[in-house]
Nucleic acid binder design. Sequence first.
RNA 1: CGGGGUGUGGCGCAGUUGGUAGCGUGCUUGACUGGGGGUCAAGAGGCCGCAGGUUCAAGUCCUGUCACUCCGACCA
Length: 478
Amino acid sequence: MAKDKNVEQITDMDQDFGQWYTDVVTKAGLIDYSGVKGFFIVRPYAYALWENIQHVLDGKFKDLGHENVSMPLLIPESLLQKEKDHVEGFAPEVAWVTHGGSEELSERLCIRPTSETLFCDHWSNVLKSWRDLPMLYNQWCSVLRWEKTTRPFLRHREFMWQEGHTLHETQEEAEQETQQMLEVYADLCENYLAMPVVKGRKTDKEKFAGAEATYTIECMMHDRKALQSGTSHYFGDGFAKAFEIQFSNRENTLSYPHQTSWGLSTRIIGGIIMTHGDNNGLNLPPKIAPIQVIVIPVAAHKEGVLEKAAELVTRLKAAGIRVKSDTSDQSPGWKFAEYEMKGIPLRIEIGPKDIEKDQCMAASRFSGEKSPIALTELEDKVQEMLENIQAGLYKRAKDNLTNNTRSAKTLEEVRAIITEHGGFVKTMWCGSLACEMQMKEIAGVTSRCIPFEQEQVGAVCPICQKPSDTMVTWGVAY
RNA sequence: CGGGGUGUGGCGCAGUUGGUAGCGUGCUUGACUGGGGGUCAAGAGGCCGCAGGUUCAAGUCCUGUCACUCCGACCA
């Protein structure tokens, strides 16, 4: 942890977490507000972060056989309405296009809140045979949902994401795809973003409109609230039936394919901020940090300093490290604070004293420690430090998750834990909606998921006292 | 959609009983500085959210309106 607060402009986390978040997002140059509520400008630094996440995911998708496509932005109203649950889920938050120029359209068009209906319509035209399956599609795009409350990254009205959509011959294959893609998200979070996850299935109340099953990865933020960070849905053949998607199967009869969709959005950037950030600002995991190392020349006017700094940059670049130097005439102290705020994992200082000793100083954003590195072993040491920082960030987040996940046997106990500590609470659950609602009302928590890793934390549902063998993780969610 | 708050240089704010707009920071230029947000000097930058009204005179008072923001409800 960084010891003292160096950056004065950022509100203390403990004092006001919401304000802290807004401060970090704006001061670190991630977001600017636009003229329209809920529409945010994702500035270059944040976009670079998104690109790195895209790069990781896109590679994984393609390795698993998926292809990228592009679907239209607009959905005719009639198309949106084909699947009953789906419309009901999304209708309250869609925006409509009613005019083309000054002419009123004969049918109004919805700006996509998600593209299931577009994919389905397309598939109903192109799918003919079992030989066409599976269809493994993905698109990178932005979608629009007219949210009432908006926050940078966490809830935009327009947000960027990827949505994968697949069609399969059998239920088993589709279910396997759903699980597989959840694992891809979990891998991204844990191994790249250093965000430990709880994997599980959503309750019926929380699942996606029109889905048969929704799977989720839930992360715990620094304020111990939950962030749903990625979801994967199994649709069965419900959409296929609604959209009349059929194919000739191996027995030469007509079948409905089984379908999945899965998505992860720029919301995850909010997750990174709230998982790793501190009172000095952002704190980015090296694996996805747009800049991994910032080189700061000290006493840059002295002979040889700038040249040496440039040399370090060249060497680190050649070693495959994302590195930049700041040769502006701001004071070193200013630069230290600035790049800490931006969450750059490692800072290298190089000045006359170092050059004399053939070394440089390396300061870790994660630990706050500063130590000399002999220039002869620059690349290896930097690489090693970046790995340690990545591991340290993960461990700290994991500890936060572990230490703030508790189990309870009674409703009152859940309420007390949430009031006192926040975090996640595990209880048994009978499976009824009524009890789930009761939990929200009394304890103020929603079900985050039914974790894959089940435990017997009791014998009965804490609300209705019926015998239960399903465990649910509850929490306050973003 | 309910409840609170705020709108004044880019950002953060002050502006008293109405009298013609100021501070901090940032920005520009230059010099000195430089190992944790440096010092000095000289500059640029305002339809006081918008629309009405009261008044000799409105940032200030009145009415309306819009936007943003926080807390709920709704949602990724």
